[in-house]
């Protein structure tokens, strides 16, 4: 595929993520503005952070008047998982991709774009990565703007219900590969089990939620790697997904 086709293919892969981001970022805009943050600042947060869990937590701390160090540290700890994702992606990027390109599309690595990129069968090109991240960046920002504006007119019950959007999105990402791969399912369950132990066993209560996420993730993925080492590239994780968007690529090319 040439660069333009790669971009288009990536863009079509990113569109469902962009749409899925709307209810979640809308919730974020809603939460930020109802807490007293100006709409334009909420949009700025989404545009510059482009992350779910980290910016939700950071913004909550801003609203609680927490210190800059605590805000920065908490956000960082929640985002350490990106180190692992980025390291994983580094194995899939060709050597022809320049540093500048990496510095730009790297901004768009999220849980979702990473998951979609990492289940691609082929080496990833920079055009694909640019295509993949551009839709989600727009979706996340626009959703936040929308949430900031309608926040004041939305009934409280709807606002509460929307709190589930972020997690529902995570579920939408994990379940299909977990259906197809027993190791993936086991790893998800083991990680959650470890997370529950760390959270509810009383003498472990000193571990902050950010560190808990890191510990449970490393332990779960580590146990998985020991018990079910991946020998082929796909890990049987999501072979069916790449066939789904064949028609969309040609449509994208017309623009």
């Amino acid at each position: 595929m040439n660069a333009k086709e790669d971009f288009c293919y990536g863009f079509t892969k990113g569109l469902p993520i962009a749409l899925g981001y709307i209810p979640v970022s809308l919730t974020f805009g809603l939460m930020a503005v109802s807490g007293g943050i100006p709409a334009w600042t909420a949009v700025l947060i989404s545009l510059t952070n482009l992350t779910s869990a980290g910016q939700f937590a950071g913004t909550n701390l801003i609203l609680e008047n927490a210190g800059l160090l605590e805000i920065t540290l908490t956000t960082f700890i929640i985002n350490i998982r990106y180190l692992l994702m980025s390291l994983s992606l580094s194995q899939r990027l060709g050597p022809e991709i320049t540093l500048t390109q990496r510095l730009i599309f790297g901004f768009g690595i999220t849980d979702e774009t990473f998951s979609v990129a990492s289940i691609e069968e082929k080496k990833l090109t920079s055009a694909y990565m640019f295509g993949l991240v551009s839709g989600p960046i727009m979706g996340w920002t626009l959703g936040t703007a929308l949430g900031s504006v309608i926040g004041s007119v939305l009934p409280e019950a709807i606002g509460n219900a929307m709190g589930i959007a972020l997690y529902a999105m995570f579920i939408a990402i994990i379940i299909p590969p977990a259906k197809r791969s027993k190791p993936v399912l086991n790893i998800v369950l083991i990680s959650i089990g470890i997370n529950l132990v760390l959270k509810y066993v009383p003498f472990l209560g000193f571990i902050s939620s950010g560190f808990r996420v890191i510990l449970a993730t490393i332990a779960g993925a580590g146990i998985g790697a020991s018990l079910w080492p991946v020998t082929d590239n796909s890990a049987g994780v999501a072979q069916n997904q790449s066939n789904m968007d064949g028609g969309d690529v040609s449509r994208c090319r017309e623009y």
């Binding site: 994702m85 849980d111 994990i174 990680s191 959650i192 490393i218 998985g224």
Partner: peptide, 13 residues
Amino acid sequence: SFLRYIPYAVLGV
């Protein structure tokens, strides 16, 4: 394998 399994573990958690 570890890196491959990270996203599923972290999203579950």
